[in-house]
Design a protein around this nucleic acid. Sequence first.
DNA 1: GCAAAAGTGTTTCAGCTACACCCATGG
DNA 2: CCATGGGTGTAGCTGAAACACTTTTGC
Lengths: 277, 277
Amino acid sequence: MIQISFEISNEIHHLLLFCAHKLFNKKLAISITNTGKNFLNHISLDCVIFGFHEGELKVLSLFYESLKLHSLPGGFIGVNESLEEAAQVVLKERTGLDAIFLKQFQVFSDFERSKQNPLVEKITKSNTTINSDFFDQRFITVGFYALVEYTKVNPTPDFISDSCKWVSLNEKIDFILDHSKIINKALQSLREQLNSQPIGYNLLPDKFTMSELRVLYETILGKELDRRNFQRKIMSYNILNKLNERRKGGAHKSPFLFEFNLENYEKALNDGLQGGW
Amino acid sequence: MIQISFEISNEIHHLLLFCAHKLFNKKLAISITNTGKNFLNHISLDCVIFGFHEGELKVLSLFYESLKLHSLPGGFIGVNESLEEAAQVVLKERTGLDAIFLKQFQVFSDFERSKQNPLVEKITKSNTTINSDFFDQRFITVGFYALVEYTKVNPTPDFISDSCKWVSLNEKIDFILDHSKIINKALQSLREQLNSQPIGYNLLPDKFTMSELRVLYETILGKELDRRNFQRKIMSYNILNKLNERRKGGAHKSPFLFEFNLENYEKALNDGLQGGW
DNA sequence: GCAAAAGTGTTTCAGCTACACCCATGG
DNA sequence: CCATGGGTGTAGCTGAAACACTTTTGC
């Protein structure tokens, strides 16, 4: 644990604030006295990690007990990594998973977006003694959404948050800052993607029934789909292999299992599925 | 003209580099000696400004005579403005136009993207004496595309470039850095948008013929469309008003003029035009 | 046997494709 | 008067939507 404390000018202050974030990530403690107004733009990223469980679309969320508030998993960009690489690191740390379906969907840069960050209080009261000014500055954040298989995820909080857990999109959840807005935009982007790309591979187990895939689509879209027409349409894309296995154990007739045809799936990811004109 | 020159530590160097960009924008001159390696991520924005003229899709480009290279108009984000606002400023300065159709489409953050920036040589040789280190750092850039009416644009170079002009997408143009990649991605995004949003209002004059609109679509999509089917489909969206005017002067039968029905156009922008599922 | 889910097929209709035909205009 | 582009109509095909019937399974 290192403790640094000194009085500095406005310019040097802001440089050190930037360094502070790096040090902060390494759990070092810095106390900085601000003497001027803000100057730098900070860039961060936030991840909307979608999972699908019990017929509900869920998002992985960090929870701050003292604030009773949720937050999206996020992070900063190292000097030697791209945004995508940095996002993969965040996902790996929160879920334990590698090589996740990951897509940047929007940059959020409203000047007001990081005002009155309730995390600041939390952080300044924590064992570190970083000054709140660092977080009072404007953060430009790049929004990513990720699709993961619910059961494979091992939700892991970071060192600021008290817990990491799935929250349903149907629940009324209080998020910090504009994170609710970011989630809504992510869902909107996901819906638009659904029309041009074969989503499902990342959200479902390796083997699944047609009903499970259809319920996933229904959940994302927020409306019911005709069982028979859905099957015909999705099969016409040639991205699924019908297996000679059936799901036993449930009541009623045992359904066939399907798996994604990875070769055609990749092709569809590149080419897109359909399009007007 | 102010000349500052001093030897500094690595940390302070980078802070000053950041200040330098602000000063640089105001045409002040700074000479900085670097003593360490890079640390900060810089954020910038680049605009792919599409115009449509003589049946060709064109992009507004800055040209550097000494380098024989082109560049996209770009800029930095001020402390009190959002990315969108900063992009509007760039567009205003290069085109003279306000309230342009503007959409962020991707962030480019590859670590290698700003290596070997040929502009550095240009800049260091210019009347300013800023050190190349500032530009050798990694820039994270947010890509925007804009749609403007060709004839209304007054192309204006910035103080580094020698000229500002339209270049056709059909020409083989050499751009600095990854700007060619950014343009390709912008065009790809525009094509995807075309399927869900009524593009055209921003690229055409107030009054236009059906052929002009169709040729625009054909140009963006890079393929021919059936004249009669196109008309039926576009009219079914109810975003056009057929006027009681005809375009005189051309050879052959004089075609009717159309204008966008702004009320329905706005509605279509929000709701989207069509969609699978 | 029965309820519920799953498998398979059919009818219908809208929308897209691909044309044909006539009209207006300038050279 | 003719070459060319513009305006309008229509037959045919395809795919989506809506729906019917049978099969399987656990209870």
